[in-house]
Write a protein that binds this DNA or RNA. Structure first.
Length: 789
DNA sequence: CTTACCCCGGTTTTT
DNA sequence: CCGGGGTAAG
């Protein structure tokens, strides 16, 4: 394709003036004599994985066995031997974070050579790169925009409306979910199995999918799924294009292969027809994303798919101590569908995994909080402690407890930076400024802040736009010339259109950060939040400033927007020493000295829905999640379950997770909960216990401690009419002061709290304040957590 | 157009 | 029990 040659910077045409030099330099630097330095210190399996360069290779890398090291060293090895030049290696990851890390580590090994690795990135970023090159062949222009989930939903709502489909009965979200599912499986509208198309809007599923695709093309836009699918179509329909990539990619590496979906698999297969030097690294035991399209089968089938494939197992674990690994291995051995490998500890047995029960989730949080304080006083860093939960609602209880204790924590997950409403609004403004034809962005902000442009005005604009086949902003301008608009919307719309003209005119004239500030200011957007009195407003303004700051490293507005459409996470700066609270899913790939695993109860973990929807496969995926959780711990893994938990506002009694039974007794200590506020004393206030009748936990354990723990579980949920809210806690008495500062807020002072917003101090007790929050009610907080409002 | 209620749903999440 | 989204009234 000639467009390969249009771009001077196109690596496919680069003569690679420095290529020889790179290889030579790398070899010189890395190979003083004999085996090169970078191979030193690899164990035999790792070394085999690095040195097996030709032919398909599957590296089954157990948790903590040096997977990333193998990947990066392998790249170094290929380059050092001069087998390929940096831009002839395709290496794909799932997340930007993983891509960044790999680039950094290759950089450390080889210096600036890593810069030349233009094909190191996520499936989506590489897909974008390919698609931009050949956009015309896919019916797009190379400046296509990438829609995120929000835009996608908005567009689908429009499609549903245009097709007169009741979006009550058939929510756009559901259609989006279906389409994503089809795209994950690389199905075009015509390929959608009739049975599945049937499931939406009386059989119109595939039809709506087709209309949606047509709309995307009109808007010159793609969604995330298209970033994989379009290249696949391109490769299939244009063998000459595929051929060029075959010539290009001498080596291919794939990280987290167990997470690939059908589309990614097909994408890889097409590319792998060129060279069979495909190395996939993954761990079937850590496949936890089946629910979003990942096919464990891909990794299980590897040897069949790629005949002659070599399989290397990395089983030496350098992360965790013996008991932890034994426990994890024993647990995961209960799964049927796995390739099978056993983690082998490289160090001492260390501490046993502990299992402890609590009366309810509140007590669980208190106990864990106490334990963390104990660890802290023994000199453990909070950064090295994590609480890994199955579902995010579990986090709240820990947060509240930690606030009371004054224990610094950070929550990973939640709404991410670029998903916050204010950020998305701001970006929508910038998108319209950069490309006035971006209808979805325009639609998002044309009445944000409220400027009196409602549905009526929008409807008029849309009508004109559709009739004339022009973008919304253009249509708005045309309406201004005509007689149809009412005076008020006309004036407002005129001003808005003029503003956009002005801003667009400034794009190449003033620095983009400055332009962004100006847009946010002049549009009244900043003002909107300044005037807002809600608890979050202050934080939102901070976020907007942060957004502008994050634009600085980019050359221009366009470059920034391209970046953020694919990189939806922002690098948050380093922060103080704090306990990490996150979901098990978010914890994959991370490690901590001490890991708390609360909520191991039937129904929550394994999650009922997983069981209901996916049966045995669901259970096995839950079990893999448990395995991921346990293997995050370097030295201490502490599992908890609670006998009572409030779900949807109702107290439910629960039985311990079957996964507890699957932990090997020899590696586990059952901890008897110390007497607490929940256990005995309050018994009187509870009615007859449903728990008494509940199926007893059939344990394979038979230690005195375990039996006592079983017996101690006592009565369970309060009967109807019983006092709600669980056992009384005497917060003040439980508090072990971990912060001794006294910022000295007087009673009556107005204060601001990150989580609870503004409030008035009603009582002061040392460094602990009782604050009447405007929104959140009365809370007892440590003064270092609030600042003067 | 904005505000006040009502109803539904509530696992995990990247790009 | 809580929040989002959508509807109905001001």
């Amino acid at each position: 394709m000639s467009d390969f040659h249009d771009r001077p910077s196109d690596d496919l045409t680069l003569p690679a003036p420095r290529a020889g030099g790179i290889a030579a330099r790398a070899s010189a630097a890395l190979r003083p004599a004999g085996a090169p330095d970078y191979l030193q210190g690899l164990n035999p399996e790792q070394r085999e994985a690095v040195e097996t360069l030709d032919g398909p290779l599957l590296v089954l890398a157990g948790a903590g066995t040096g997977k990333t090291r193998v990947l990066t060293t392998r790249i170094a090895h290929i380059l050092a031997l001069g087998k390929a030049r940096p831009f002839e290696i395709l290496s794909v990851t799932f997340t930007n974070k993983a891509a960044r890390e790999m680039r950094e580590r290759v950089g450390k090994l080889l210096g600036e050579v890593a810069e030349g690795m233009q094909w190191l990135g996520t499936f989506h970023s590489i897909g974008t790169r390919i698609l931009r090159r050949h956009a015309e062949l896919a019916g797009l222009s190379s400046s296509f925009t990438i829609l995120d989930t929000d835009d996608q939903i908005r567009l689908l709502k429009q499609v549903l409306a245009a097709e007169n489909i009741d979006d009550k009965r058939w929510p756009a979200r559901q259609l989006a979910f279906a389409i994503d599912g089809w795209k994950n499986r690389a199905l075009s509208p015509k390929d959608v199995p009739a049975g599945e198309a049937q499931s939406f809007a009386a059989g119109r599923g595939a039809e709506l999918y087709a209309i949606y695709q047509a709309r995307l093309k009109q808007l010159n836009a793609v969604d995330f799924g298209d970033l994989l699918l379009e290249p696949i179509r391109l490769f299939r329909d244009h063998p000459d294009v595929l051929e060029q990539y075959h010539r290009r990619f001498k080596y291919m590496l794939v990280d987290e292969y167990q997470d690939t979906n059908v589309a990614q698999y097909l994408w890889l297969r097409l590319l792998a027809k060129g060279s069979t030097n495909l190395a996939c690294v993954g761990d079937d035991d850590q496949s936890i994303y089946g629910w979003r399209g990942a096919e464990v089968e891909n990794i299980l089938r590897f040897e069949k798919d790629f005949p002659g494939a070599k399989v290397v197992r990395l089983e030496r674990n350098y992360r965790s101590t013996g008991h932890i690994l034994n426990a994890a291995s024993h647990l995961i051995a209960h799964n049927q569908g796995r390739l099978g490998k056993t983690l082998r500890p490289q160090t001492e047995l260390g501490e046993k995994v502990t299992v402890a029960g609590a009366w309810d989730s509140g007590e669980e949080a208190r106990q864990i909080g106490d334990e963390i304080e104990a660890l802290q006083s023994k000199g453990h860093k909070l950064d090295e402690i994590a609480i890994l939960v199955r579902a995010s609602f579990q986090m709240r209880e820990f947060e509240e407890r930690f606030i009371t204790l004054g224990l610094p924590y950070r929550v990973i997950g939640g709404p991410r930076f670029y998903e916050r409403a204010e950020i998305r609004d701001a970006l929508a403004y910038l998108r319209v400024v950069a490309s006035p034809a971006d209808d979805l962005a325009f639609e998002r902000i044309y009445n944000t802040p409220k400027r009196g442009l409602g549905d009526a005005a929008l409807k008029q604009i849309v009508e004109v736009a559709r009739a004339e086949e022009i973008p919304l902003l253009e249509a708005a301008r045309r309406l201004l010339d005509g007689p149809d608009l009412k005076p008020k919307p006309r004036a407002t719309l005129k001003e808005l259109a003029q503003s956009f003209d002005r801003w667009s005119g400034l794009v190449d004239k003033i620095p983009h950060t400055e332009l962004a500030e100006q847009v946010l200011e002049e549009s009244g957007y900043t003002d909107m939040w300044t005037k807002d009195r809600s608890a979050e407003a202050q934080g939102r303004l901070e976020n907007l400033k942060e957004l502008v700051r994050s634009m600085e490293p980019f050359e221009n507005l366009r470059g920034f927007l391209e970046h953020i459409s694919l990189v939806m996470d922002a690098d948050r700066g380093p922060s103080e020493d704090a306990v990490t609270i996150m979901t098990l899913h978010a914890a994959k790939g991370l490690e901590f000295d001490t890991v708390f695993l609360p909520g191991w109860e039937e129904g929550l973990f394994p999650h009922q829905r997983s069981l209901d929807e996916s049966g045995r496969a669901g259970l096995e995926e839950e079990r893999r999640l448990a395995y991921v959780g346990v293997t995050r711990a370097r030295r201490r893994a502490k599992v908890w379950f609670a006998s009572n938990r409030r779900i949807h506002g109702m107290w439910q009694s629960s039985i311990p997770s079957r996964f507890l039974d699957e932990l090997p007794e020899a590696d586990v200590d059952v901890i008897e909960a110390p007497a607490t506020f929940g256990g005995g004393g309050m018994g009187g206030s509870y009615g007859a216990s449903r728990f008494d009748r509940a199926e007893p936990f059939k344990s394979t354990y038979d230690t005195p401690g375990w039996r006592r723990a079983q017996e101690n579980r006592g009565p369970a949920s309060p009967g109807p009419g019983a006092r709600r809210g669980g056992p009384v806690t005497i917060e003040g008495e439980l508090v072990a002061s971990s912060t001794a500062t006294s910022a000295g807020f007087p009673t009556g002072a107005r204060v601001f709290h990150q989580k609870f917003g503004n409030g008035t101090v009603v009582e002061v007790d040392g460094n602990k304040l009782t604050v009447a929050f405007d929104k959140a009610g009365h809370k007892r907080v440590v003064d270092s957590f609030v600042k003067a409002a």
